[in-house]
Computed example of a mutant assay.
Amino acid sequence: MVRIKAGEVDRDNSVDKVEQILQGAMQEFLQHGYAGTSMDRVAVAAGVSKATVYSHFQDKEGLFKVLLEQLASKKNNSIFGTEPIEGEPGAILHQVATKALEQMINDKEHSAFMRVLIGESGRFPELAQICVRAMIKPVAETLTQYLAAPELKIPDPEATARILIGALVHFHITQNVMHGEDIIPMESDRLIDALTHLINKCAD
């Protein structure tokens, strides 16, 4: 017979509760926006008591921050993996850019969440800053570190990383978040091929 200690059960239940709360919070933020979401609504959506929500999250901003950080961590790991980036520059950058755009384009929840974030950023600039800190900064740092390799001969790796990220984010926002794919259509492969070509030119 396998015996489970009470503390282990408590930890498992705690993890499950947090996941329930985060799922409920995502549902509410997408439906009602940040301003329209309350901890009461989150509790109802998550199927837990308000006291349970507050036992894990101090306030709505803290809950939003954890949700965003979890989303960012999941996205970044799926794009870069957990090992250092190594390989031929053109192939690596093509692979990273393709994964990044696939993640953004195919994940409808991510697009919806970005609409909420952009829409609320005027009234709640700290939310946008959380996004930049949790989602954009780690990607920029990882790419900068890779592009700084001496053999690539890139004069300004940090600025180049910003250019790459900016092009991908702009594509995602104009095509998907703002529903502009029929107005300024472009295949994602064209963008990725052009970016890869630019980097290869720098590395030649």
Rank of each mutant, 00 (worst) to 15 (best):
residue 2 V to Q: 08
residue 4 I to Y: 08
residue 7 G to Q: 15
residue 9 V to T: 07
residue 11 R to S: 11
residue 13 N to D: 09
residue 14 S to M: 11
residue 14 S to E: 05
residue 16 D to N: 15
residue 18 V to R: 10
residue 20 Q to Y: 08
residue 21 I to E: 00
residue 24 G to F: 00
residue 30 L to M: 07
residue 30 L to F: 06
residue 31 Q to Y: 02
residue 31 Q to W: 03
residue 39 M to T: 07
residue 40 D to A: 04
residue 41 R to A: 14
residue 42 V to P: 00
residue 42 V to I: 10
residue 50 K to M: 14
residue 53 V to G: 00
residue 58 Q to A: 13
residue 59 D to P: 03
residue 63 L to Y: 00
residue 66 V to A: 06
residue 67 L to I: 04
residue 69 E to C: 15
residue 71 L to T: 09
residue 72 A to M: 02
residue 81 G to L: 09
residue 82 T to V: 10
residue 82 T to Y: 15
residue 86 E to L: 08
residue 87 G to S: 07
residue 89 P to R: 12
residue 97 A to D: 09
residue 98 T to Q: 10
residue 98 T to W: 01
residue 98 T to G: 14
residue 101 L to E: 01
residue 103 Q to G: 10
residue 104 M to C: 10
residue 105 I to A: 02
residue 105 I to F: 04
residue 106 N to C: 06
residue 107 D to V: 02
residue 107 D to Q: 07
residue 109 E to C: 14
residue 110 H to K: 06
residue 111 S to W: 12
residue 111 S to M: 10
residue 112 A to T: 09
residue 114 M to Y: 01
residue 114 M to S: 05
residue 121 S to Q: 13
residue 126 E to R: 13
residue 128 A to R: 05
residue 129 Q to T: 12
residue 131 C to W: 04
residue 134 A to L: 13
residue 145 Q to G: 02
residue 148 A to D: 05
residue 148 A to M: 03
residue 150 P to V: 02
residue 151 E to P: 06
residue 156 D to S: 09
residue 157 P to G: 15
residue 157 P to I: 10
residue 162 R to S: 11
residue 165 I to Q: 03
residue 167 A to T: 03
residue 171 F to M: 12
residue 171 F to T: 06
residue 172 H to A: 08
residue 172 H to I: 14
residue 172 H to R: 13
residue 172 H to G: 02
residue 177 V to G: 09
residue 177 V to L: 13
residue 183 I to Q: 13
residue 185 P to M: 04
residue 186 M to V: 06
residue 189 D to M: 05
residue 197 H to T: 15
residue 198 L to S: 14
residue 200 N to Q: 05
residue 200 N to K: 08
residue 201 K to H: 12
residue 204 D to F: 15
